[in-house]
């Protein structure tokens, strides 16, 4: 049942030579990446509103708690009723990333130095400048740490959604097939592919994010 590491390495080396490999990888990368980015933008927007209006925070609080504590498998099965299997991983990645980023960014907003905000109030600093010079530097560490955690989570949840939804031409489908045919070699090889893509995605995104935030802090 269990293959040797040598067989896994052989399978792994053969995978990129397969004609369908890159389209399978891009299918999952695009969807999980899209879900992550949509969640990132939505979470930042919601956190900004919640930071500004206490009522929004109170109203969102039960939804965020429910999303945080509900098993992801329940969401996946529930969403399969309404969603096409091909777009399921987008939504599930979105769902898993949203509360992590929202909670962290809101925490960052709340910990903004009130004395700096008083200064901005007194000097009548406009909202755009407040955002750029006061809030963004304050939120940056919270955002970086949230993204670092959420990227890995989005990959785990996104692939789980694909394994249950089995959309054609996805990494999840390949894992499912490996399970059906008891092919532990394929299972390990695809798992390594997922881990590598997830790490690459994290490294690329985090270095881009850090560069963006550092540039904003120059001058």
């Amino acid at each position: 049942m269990l293959v040797t590491p040598f067989v896994v390495v052989k399978k792994l080396a053969a995978l990129p030579l397969d004609a369908g490999f890159w389209s399978v990888v891009s299918f999952s990368v695009l969807r999980i990446g899209l879900g992550f980015l949509l969640a990132l933008l939505t979470a930042m927007l919601l956190a900004a509103f919640a930071g500004r209006f206490r009522l929004v925070e109170v109203m969102l609080s039960p939804y965020i708690s429910v999303v945080k504590s509900t098993p992801i498998a329940s969401f996946i099965i529930l969403c399969l009723i309404w969603l096409d299997a091909r777009s399921l991983s987008v939504f599930i990645a979105f769902l898993i990333v949203l509360p992590v980023v929202y909670t962290n960014v809101l925490q960052g907003i709340k910990s903004t130095d009130p004395k700096l905000l008083e200064m901005a109030e007194l000097f009548e600093v406009g909202w755009w400048r407040r955002l750029r010079y006061i809030y963004v530097p304050q939120i940056s560490p919270y955002l970086v740490s949230a993204c670092s955690v959420a990227i890995g989570m989005s990959w785990k949840a996104g692939i789980a959604a694909e394994v249950i939804g089995i959309p054609d031409g996805s990494i999840g489908e390949k894992l499912y097939e490996a399970k059906v045919y008891f092919s532990s070699g394929d299972l390990f090889a695809w798992t390594v592919v997922i881990v590598v893509i997830s790490i690459l995605f994290e490294k690329l995104f985090m270095s881009g994010l850090k560069t963006f935030l550092t540039r904003r802090e120059q001058h």
Binding site: D113, L116, M119, L122, F123, V125, Y133, P137, H219
Partner: peptide
């Protein structure tokens, strides 16, 4: 306008940016 007891500056930005703000 004010000079506060604590400076209340945007720490990661330069003096020029803090004044321009």
């Amino acid at each position: 306008s004010a000079v506060f007891q604590e400076e209340r500056l945007c720490e990661s930005f330069s003096a020029v940016t803090n004044v321009r703000l």
